[in-house]
Every structure is written in C-alpha cells, then in structure tokens.
Amino acid sequence: MQLSTHALTLRFGPTTALSALTTNFPEGSRTVVWGPAGGGKTSLLKCLAGLLRPTEGEVRWDDVSTSGLSAEARRAAQVDFGMVFQTDALFDSLTVLDNVLLPLRNRRVPEAEASARAHEALRRVGLSHALDRRPEHLSGGMKKRCGVARAIVARPHVLLADDPFSGLDPQTERSIAELLLEVSEGRTLVVALPDPVDALPVTRTVRLVDGAEARG
C-alpha cells in the first residue's frame, strides 16, 4: 500500500503538530522519520494509520482519501496497519498471548487459526517461552517484542513503529532493529526515531522539524 499526505495539517488547540506536510511512502519502502522531540513524528504516524483526523489536508491510502471514509470503512481498512507504540500500549490485564490474539479475536478469525497465527508471530519475535506472562513482568525489550508481535499478527501491509528503541540498551536496540527489518519484509515500513541509527539501514529518511519536512 502506498501512503501519502497532502498539505497535512494537525492542530491540538493552540499547538500545531503538523503544518502542511506533503510527502509519500511508496509500497514496500522503508523510511525513517526523524527529528527533535515535538517535531510531529508521532502525530504523522498516527495520521497515517487513521488514528488522528487531519485538521486540514488529507492522508491517502493508495488513492483513497481517508477524510471521506465512514468510521466503519476506516476501521475495515485499518486491518492493513500494524503499529508498535512508543509506550508499548500492552494491556496489563491480559497475558502476552492474549495481547497478541486481540486483533484476531476482534476480527472474528476462527479460534484455531488465530491461535496458530499468534504462536507463529510470538515465535518470530522470540517470545515463545513467555506466552502466559503478564506485560508488567516483562523487560523493556520483551515488551517491545510483544508489541511487534501484536502489530504483525493480522498480517498488515504497513508497519509503523514509534520510537521503538527508547529506553533500550544498544544490544537490545540492534536486535529489535533486526526484528523490524525481518518482519517488515515485503511491507511498507515507517519508523519514527530521534536520530537515524546504523542498525536500521533504510532507503529514505525524512527529517521533521516543527511539523514540516526539513531539507538538508
């Protein structure tokens, strides 16, 4: 899926998170969006996934403008997105396995198939040994892996990762970077980072400052 933004502007009250941003992310591309804190990286990722509505301008999924979609159509199309959140956003009341099963159960995937796919996703991120543990008892790296597993379990075409290395040591950072590259094979990958890192070689970087793309 190709993602593009057209004069995308997002405001929260008096603060402007994104200002007239026009850019695109071709199908299968790997992009790092980087820049200082408050530059609009998280906002851009959430707009791309349809989690935040643009104040002005629009986001297009292939050639479909998200502004015109009904709530149901948007939700149906969001099956194409997996997102790794900055805060992990795992549910502490659920086990690791149930957290990963959540997107499948909500989409009414038959239980046997859902279970097989969740186990497969957890195996790929290396968490097969921690299925029954609660997120609060996991290390930072393991939580991130669990978040990746939940993001990919519904087989999305687009994988978004918001600052996936924050609070991780260099070694864990490298292993999560490898994991992201591996699981995003054949998908569109957009990663938001404070700085580009060597561990994550990508075809393109976009630098966001004050909600707009900064050149050079």
Binding site: K46, A49, L51, R75, Q78, V79, F81, G82, M83, F85, Q86, T87, A89, L90, F91, L102, P103, N106, R107, R150, A151, A154
Partner: peptide
C-alpha cells in the same frame, strides 16, 4: 495517555 485506546482501535475494536 498510554496509547492503549489507539492500540485497541488498530486491533479492530471500538
């Protein structure tokens, strides 16, 4: 604030 609402939304839940 923990982004769990958005995680729910992307998990096809309202």
């Amino acid at each position: 604030v923990n982004e769990q609402l958005e995680a729910l939304e992307l998990s096809a839940a309202d």
